[in-house]
Design a binder for these strands. Structure first.
Length: 1166
RNA sequence: GCCCAGGUGCUGGAAUUGGCAGACAGGCAUGGUUGAGGGCCAUGUGUCCUUAAGGGCGUGCGGGUUCAAGUCCCGUCCUGGGCACCA
């Protein structure tokens, strides 16, 4: 009875579906185990053999866990929103919804080609998925909850004090009670401070504006990565080498109003969480890298007010702005004519009763304040008796600016001072006791540095061209140069800027900053080596310690002071931290990196010019896409302010549009929808025409969510996929917790895997889930590469070059790599006169390259024929008649692997020539002696465009799903990338045939109930041990070879006992479930093998009494000797030395040393 | 430049608490079975010397530790992946 795998597999796949064998229950006595694969994007191309690799591994583990008594959740679904469906829609006009459905469930594409669909393809491989829990991210029942989570994010802010996300209503309560002064939140940088009174006075819109700066998802105008070809913005992780990940289109910087996710609030927790999860180290490393935490200091360098002055150093008390020279006379005048109240107060203040020095009518920026205590940064303003509204507004404005410079302001009215001077002084005293608030605002240049120890090495400062201060500080002389530079660098695309890191460019602003510790005057430059997006967009340049600063200084002739003891910096900067001593640095001289860093921060803090700071590289994630095929935002706009649609009216369904392109006005595709307005009375989507008619109807958001929205929480939905009340019920989530084992590719390291962790932490903070991390253990499966086939083409080219004498000549250029290949001569180009076309085809479209190639050909001409082993080309050339000159060279061309004969590397020349894709070669000549053409093969990523795709469907038909499963595992370690070679599958296929035979006597099934031999029991238990260890270590390739060894041994032993064959069937069931079920049934079991108890390993069958000792002399094994295992060291030594062979080896010498390791080895030295 | 992973036969790979390198497969070769092909079975297959017995050399390269190194240490080269004017 032979092994009819197709019948067997179809039978059991049907059985599993019918009996819902793998349906997971949310209630069970068994312990739970959650195994998950990253769900696929269902593309029109269907599955290739690379896709199921991870699914097979996870399936084996899930099945293994079922055998060992776990309640296993092993679901599957589709990440069905995404760009390719939309691109396809743009091209063909078909609805993405329809094409996506066909890609999953099967059907026909527009050309009428049959698409079998992901589901059918997956089903054929025999996975133990619980399909009753399937999710599709593009299903309104699913994205309803994606929208819901978005609303929760909108309704939350991040409280740094409690290190948690909290409801936005908590924040508004705090604002009403105490303003925002004490709020320590993750929020936008430019937050204006306000009191509870001011908060109450804000209009509704102003309040919404303020709150947007705190929300975890917020609308902000920011510089984004705009991809004109795709018509959308991209997140940082969707850009690779300055071009879009999908399609490879250029990306430019553009200012746009976009939804963003405040993931930066979670930077530290995302970093800390990594230590609690069992993920591959490289993956953790790349997340760590991406988050990019760096420890250092934030330092503020004040800007010199009179850069064009006599070069005098500005004293610390001169706090005036750029217009000080105009105001200073006015201030003097005011000092001489004080009001009554001013006079009274000044007399008290100048008497130093309060213990602090005050100044009168002093310049701060472009304002003259009445009194100021510079050391405590306290301003005292005296107001007239009658205060008009307009005056009050002006005062508030003025207070804000002064606040931003780091001064507090107290105001008293004239009558207060005159009426109760003691009370006023008491108030001032209280203010003086408070700490100085470091300046939060404008005039200083704030920089972030990881090397505060090198602060005395600063010789200039550099701002990013986009820096907001640039316009303000640039002197009139430099204005032109600076503007030109800014314009030039703004024009450069991101890619250009990245490609060109070598060119040093920059311009002096004319402004100077003041060193906060030395008081020295430091020139301020702008340069595009400083990135606007990182840190503060400005750097303190320490040329001796940073190569970029060094290069910049060298280029522009700026000074390079050396602050390292005994280090030569005449050639390059010195960036080593350890073992370095700081010199020429005032109080830091002589200190190590660590000591100096700490001292520098202390000193900066003392003068309120800086503080220690942790900076993160990770930016907030842009969450809007100008696309159609994504989740619509549950958002409408009232007076330009975003409003959330109430939860109970979700989902907000994606509208129909006629075309999937942006509108003429450049709006996203949803701008084409005619029914896309929100009626706040009826709470439904209504026609846009009503927008002007009714006051309760508002426009809906036109952007959609990015691809990662739906995938950031789907693992929770599987726990309770039918729930209509909640995204996952509390009980279901508490039961399944999180994913125990997650399989997927490492390419999602900084996208999906980071965003999922972020959302999970957020949901935990808001108590929607009870876990902090989504995936406990993660395994990255490696990519299966396709074996692309290549043909090697030589093409004769005429009128190609001339030698020095003006004669045309003959030559061959064949890459050395191709010397052992067979060639195909293409005639297609012979007829073509214009060689430029050929150049283009080969990439030699550059004049220099052409010249170089020509030269090389001439110099190599003399010895090329010797190097070239296949003489047929030479013969061909020699036989050419009436041709004076010809040059030939070879290149390779991909050929479709379906044009090969069988599984061999031989090209079907007839079909190749007839193939339309290779019509240039229809009259080609194949240079081979034996009439065969053997292609070259190279591993590459499997893809349709490379003609190297192997479909699992064909493999299943030819060899069966069990063979496919075993082979994919047998190929090599799971995490490794490895090439696919269909020919190799015969190994595992014949193994399965042998296994089948083991359970059969000739034509009939037959097992005996007799006792198995000791050898068979040993083989079985050895296999149980090895396979179990391997499966726990995810070493599936070695367990497959263990099965092979096991079956080979049992065959040799002629084993047919149930005692061995029954446990073996269970053992192999996770790997080859179909054949295992069939054998299990034939063994007389009625239930599926899926939940049969896993065989237990028993040591006793493996106990050996003897060991074949390798006997080595000076480390080289010469022979082996079988000895009982219970011998002592001495006994072993005695027996070995007594052996005849030992005596032969020693040839009468006495050993210097004898090493005996019982149970392992004997080594005789001498 | 920085971080990570990895270099073992013709190919995929096995062996890393230091203990007979090349398990298990594919390929190739020879033989058997078969009308033929496919299939199946058997044997061989790191490399060099040798009729053989046997021996030399062998895990990218160079050193070192050890009775013993693919495995540990130092240096170096190469390949693949990630990040990158990140201050």
């Amino acid at each position: 009875m032979s092994y009819h795998f197709n019948e067997i597999e179809a039978k059991w796949q049907k059985y599993w579906t019918k009996n819902q064998t793998f349906k997971a229950e949310n209630k069970s006595d068994k312990p739970k185990y959650y195994v998950l694969d990253m769900f696929p994007y269902p593309s029109g191309a269907g599955l290739h053999v690379g896709h199921p690799l991870g699914y097979i591994a996870s399936d084996i583990y899930a099945r293994y866990k079922r055998h060992t008594g776990f309640n296993v959740l092993h679901p599957q679904g589709y990440d069905s929103f995404g760009l390719p469906a939309e691109q396809y829609a743009i091209q063909t006009g078909q609805r993405p919804e329809d094409t996506t459905r066909v890609n999953i469930d099967g059907g026909f594409d527009k050309e009428g080609n049959k698409i079998s669909g992901y589901r059918k393809q997956l089903d054929k491989i025999g996975f133990s998925f619980d399909w009753s829990r399937e999710v599709r991210t593009s299903d309104p029942d699913y994205y309803r909850w994606t929208q819901w989570i978005f609303i929760q994010l909108f309704e939350s802010w991040y409280d740094i004090e409690t290190d948690k996300a909290r409801q936005i209503s908590d924040l508004t309560e705090i604002f009403s009670a105490e303003g925002n002064l004490k709020v320590n939140a993750a929020c936008d940088d430019e937050i204006v401070e306000f009191s509870p009174g001011e908060w109450k006075l804000f209009s509704s819109e102003e309040k919404q504006q303020v709150l947007l700066k705190y929300r975890l998802t917020y609308l902000a105008e920011s510089e984004v990565n705009w991809c004109p070809q795709l018509g959308t913005v991209l997140a940082n992780d969707e850009i690779v080498n300055g071009v879009s990940e999908r399609g490879g289109y250029p990306v430019v910087r553009k200012k746009m109003t976009q939804w963003s996710m405040r993931i930066s609030a979670y930077a530290q927790r995302l970093l800390d969480g990594l230590s609690s999860i069992d993920w591959p180290q490289p993956l953790k490393d790349s997340q760590t890298n991406w988050i990019g935490r760096s420890k250092g200091a934030l330092v503020e360098f004040p800007i010199l007010a009179f850069p064009e002055g006599e070069g005098k150093q500005k004293p610390g008390y001169m706090t005036g702005g750029n217009n000080s020279h105009l105001l200073i006379d006015k201030a003097k005048q005011m000092r001489n004519n004080p009001t009554q109240a001013e006079k009274l107060l000044w007399d008290c203040l100048i008497s130093k009763k309060l213990g602090y020095k005050f100044r009168q009518q002093h310049l701060i920026d472009d304002f003259i304040v009445d009194f100021v205590c510079l050391s405590k940064k306290l301003v005292i303003e005296v107001d007239g008796n009658i205060i008009h509204d307009s005056q009050q507004e002006k005062d508030e404005e003025r207070t804000k600016i002064i606040n931003n410079l780091g001064f507090r302001v107290v105001r008293f009215r004239n009558e207060e001072i005159i009426g109760n001077i003691d009370f006023v002084l008491e108030q001032i005293k209280i203010q003086l006791q408070q700490d100085v608030i470091p300046p939060s605002g404008a005039r200083g240049i704030k920089v972030f540095t990881t090397r505060p120890d090198t602060i005395f090495g600063v010789s200039f400062m550099t701002l990013a061209p986009e820096h907001e201060l640039v316009q303000e500080i640039t002197t009139s002389e430099q204005k032109e140069a600076v503007s030109a530079y800014i314009e030039k660098s703004a024009k450069r695309s991101e890619r250009e800027r990245m490609a060109d890191v070598k060119t040093i460019s920059g311009v002096f602003t004319g402004a100077y900053a003041i060193h906060p510790l030395s008081g020295e005057k430091i020139p301020v430059w702008i340069g595009d080596y400083v990135l606007a997006g990182y840190g503060t967009g400005a750097v303190m340049s320490v040329p001796c310690g940073d190569q970029r600063d060094y290069d910049f200084a060298t280029h522009f002739g700026l000074p390079i002071p050396n602050i390292f003891e005994g280090i030569d910096i005449s050639e390059e900067a010195y960036a080593e931290k350890v073992g370095t001593k700081i010199a020429n640095s005032d109080f830091l001289s002589g200190l190590s990196y660590k000591e100096a860093t700490q001292k520098a921060i202390e000193a900066l803090e003392a003068v309120h010019a800086g503080k220690g700071k942790i900076n993160y590289r990770m930016r907030d994630a842009v969450f809007s896409r100008q696309r159609y095929w994504g989740e619509p935002f549950p958002v409408y706009y009232v007076n330009g302010m975003p409003q959330m649609i109430e939860e109970k009216y979700l989902p907000l369904r994606l509208p129909e549009v006629e075309k999937y392109l942006p509108t003429e006005e450049g709006e996203p595709p949803l701008g084409r929808a005619t029914t896309w307005a929100w009626d706040t009375n009826k709470n439904e989507i209504v026609s846009n025409e009503l927008l002007d008619v009714s006051k309760s109807i508002y426009p809906l958001e036109l952007n959609t969510m990015p691809g990662w929205a739906g995938s950031s929480w789907y693992f929770f939905r599987y726990m309770d996929s039918e729930n209509q009340e909640r995204f996952v019920s509390e009980e279901a989530q508490k039961y399944w917790e999180n994913v125990d084992l997650y399989f997927g590719g490492s390419e999602h390291a900084t996208g999906h895997l980071l965003y999922s962790r972020f959302w999970t932490k957020f949901l935990k903070d808001r108590k929607f889930v009870a876990v902090e991390e989504p995936f406990k253990k993660l395994i990255n499966q490696g990519m299966i590469l396709g074996m692309s086939a290549f043909v090697y083409i030589v093409e004769p080219i005429f009128k190609y070059f001339e030698n020095g004498n003006g004669n045309k000549m003959k030559g061959i250029e064949v890459s050395e790599l191709f010397l052992d290949k067979r060639f195909i001569i293409s005639y297609s180009l012979i007829q073509k006169e214009d060689t430029r076309e050929l150049y283009d085809q080969l990439g030699f479209n550059n004049k220099d390259l052409q010249k170089k190639f020509k030269e090389e050909l001439i110099t190599k001409y003399s010895n090329i024929t010797e190097r070239f082993e296949d003489e047929s080309i030479q013969k061909y050339l020699d036989n050419l008649e009436n041709v004076e000159a010809v040059a030939v060279f070879a290149y390779k061309k991909r050929v479709d692997i379906s044009l090969l004969i069988g599984l061999s590397d031989e090209l079907d020349i007839g079909r190749f020539k007839k193939d339309l894709r290779y019509q240039d070669f229809s009259d080609a000549e194949v240079l081979t002696e034996d009439g065969k053409y053997i292609v070259g093969r190279e591993p590459e990523k499997m893809s349709k465009s490379k003609y190297n795709v192997v479909s699992p469907d064909e493999i299943c038909v030819q060899y069966g799903a069990d063979s496919l499963r075993l082979y994919e595992m047998f190929l090599g370690p799971l995490e490794q990338a490895k090439p696919w070679n269909t020919a190799g599958i015969t190994g595992v296929h014949s193994f399965l045939k042998k296994l089948w035979k083991l359970y059969h006597n000739d034509e009939v099934f037959g097992v005996s109930d007799e006792k198995a031999s000791a050898d068979s029991m040993k083989t079985l238990h050895k296999t149980i041990k090895k396979v179990t260890e391997d499966i726990e270590a995810f070493s599936f390739n070695t367990s497959v070879s263990s099965f092979m060894i096991c079956v080979n041994e049992l065959m040799a032993q002629k084993c047919d006992q149930r005692e061995v064959l029954e446990p073996l069937a269970i053992l192999i069931a996770p790997y080859a479930p179909h054949i295992a079920e069939e054998l299990w049934q034939k063994l007389g079991n009625n239930e599926s093998v899926a939940t049969a108890a896993y065989p237990e390993f028993e040591e006793k069958y493996l106990v050996e009494s003897t060991k074949e000792y390798p006997i080595s002399f000076n480390g080289k094994t010469r022979f082996t000797l079988e000895l009982p295992l219970d011998l002592s060291k001495e006994e072993i030594e005695e027996m070995v030395m007594a052996n005849e062979k030992t005596k032969n080896q020693m040839e009468g010498r006495t050993p210097k040393k004898i090493i005996v390791v019982p149970g392992k080895i004997v080594n005789i030295v001498g």
